[in-house]
Each structure stands twice: as structure tokens, then as C-alpha cells.
């Protein structure tokens, strides 16, 4: 994580190129009046959400570019404001470049906290999940293993292990799981998680 706090500055003056790499949180200002400044210089964005960054000390026009637009994109709002969008979980560097300098902002995009589990009462995946009730009880309350109270990722992980034959391949759960698609297993897992 400390790498994301590095403030990396380089001067475009031909005779002097100073590049400083710092292993821990630290900042080096070479010449504030020449270098474009962006704050914050590192931030975390939840996928599907936005964050603003402020720019100052701009010489001439400023360009902004993401090193990996599939994770984070950048859009100009006005002369001193840019908006970062978290497209999907991952990391990206947004590089701001003016006539004389450049500045990078490190973006970490995190997954939606609820892992796409539907709101309680949602019916997405309900009919699919009801295939499990005959053995695991209505709403997964139990018969064979209780499913309500398990996390979505736990249930999905177990279904995947059954479906790829790595868990009890000759058992009845493998036979069931093998008949479902990944997307269906995901919906089922999310539904049981939404019931807790």
C-alpha cells in the first residue's frame, strides 16, 4: 500500500531530471511554482462510484490520462477539478501532464461491499435457489446443511468445487452442481446470502 502514497515528480528541464523513488510515505517538492499539483495524490474508489481531485499550478493546458481505463477513468469537470470514476476493481495511475511537469494520482478501485448480494426481499435468483429447498429446507433453513447464514462467496465456492469435480465427485451435490452455469450458481449464492 505504501507505494500508492509516493508522489512522483519529474522536471522537464533538459539539464536536470530528478526522479525520486521513496519507499515509505514522503513527499519531495522540487520547485512548487513549476510543478502541477493534484490532491489527493492517492485515493480509493468503490466500483461504480466517483471521486473528485483538485488540480493547481497548471502551466498551459493540462492533459489527464488513466494508465488502465478498464479500472479507472478521468474526466475534466472544470479548470481545477477532475472526476475519477471507479470502473471495476483494480489499480490505475492517473497521469496529469502540463507544459512543464507531470503528476500522478494512484487509484485503487474496490469491489462493491455487499458483493452484489441483492437487497433483502429481492427476488433475483429466488426461483433458482428454490431448487435447493427440497433438500436444504425452505429458504435454506436446513435438512441437509443449512444454507441461510452462509456468505455468498462461501456458497459459490462450494458449488464451484462440486461442479468442477474437486469435491466428492461421485456424490449427489456434484451431480447437481454440474448441471448449473456459473452465473446461475452466483445468483443462487447471492440469494441465500440475502436471506440472513
Amino acid at each position: 500500500m505504501s507505494l500508492h502514497n509516493i508522489f512522483d515528480t519529474s522536471l522537464s528541464k533538459p539539464s536536470i531530471t530528478i526522479k525520486l523513488i521513496v519507499c515509505f510515505i514522503s513527499t519531495l517538492f522540487v520547485s512548487p511554482s513549476f510543478a502541477v499539483s493534484v490532491t489527493p495524490n492517492a485515493t480509493t474508489v468503490v466500483a461504480g462510484q466517483y471521486q473528485f481531485v483538485s488540480v493547481s499550478n497548471v502551466n498551459g493546458s493540462l492533459s489527464a490520462k488513466s494508465s488502465n481505463p478498464s479500472y479507472a477513468t478521468v474526466t475534466k469537470v472544470d479548470a481545477s477539478t477532475y472526476r475519477i470514476y471507479g470502473a471495476s476493481p483494480g489499480t490505475a495511475k492517473i497521469e496529469f501532464k502540463d507544459k512543464k511537469s507531470e503528476s500522478k494520482v494512484y487509484i485503487t478501485v474496490t469491489a462493491i461491499v455487499t458483493n452484489n448480494a441483492p437487497k433483502v426481499g429481492s427476488t433475483a435468483g429466488r426461483l433458482l435457489a428454490s431448487n435447493c429447498f427440497q433438500c436444504h429446507g425452505t429458504n435454506g433453513a436446513g435438512g441437509f446443511e443449512k444454507l441461510v447464514g452462509e456468505s455468498s462467496s462461501e456458497i459459490y465456492k462450494d458449488l464451484k468445487k462440486f461442479s468442477n469435480g474437486s469435491e466428492d465427485p461421485n456424490g449427489i451435490m456434484a451431480a447437481h452442481a454440474m448441471g448449473f452455469t456459473d452465473a446461475q450458481m452466483n445468483l443462487i449464492a447471492n440469494y441465500f446470502a440475502s436471506l440472513r
Binding site: S163, N164, I172, A175, H176, M178, G179, F180, T181
Partner: peptide, 21 residues
């Protein structure tokens, strides 16, 4: 055990994961 998937108006034995049903 058998898993059936809907396809073009009928329920057919699933062919997922390369397995027969």
C-alpha cells in the same frame, strides 16, 4: 439426479460442465 435447463420451449437435460445428465 437430473438438472434440466430451459431451451427453446422445452426442458432439456443440462449439458453444462461437459457432463451428461
Amino acid at each position: 439426479s437430473a438438472v434440466y435447463q430451459y431451451s427453446n420451449g422445452v426442458m432439456i437435460p443440462s449439458t453444462q460442465n461437459g457432463m451428461t445428465q
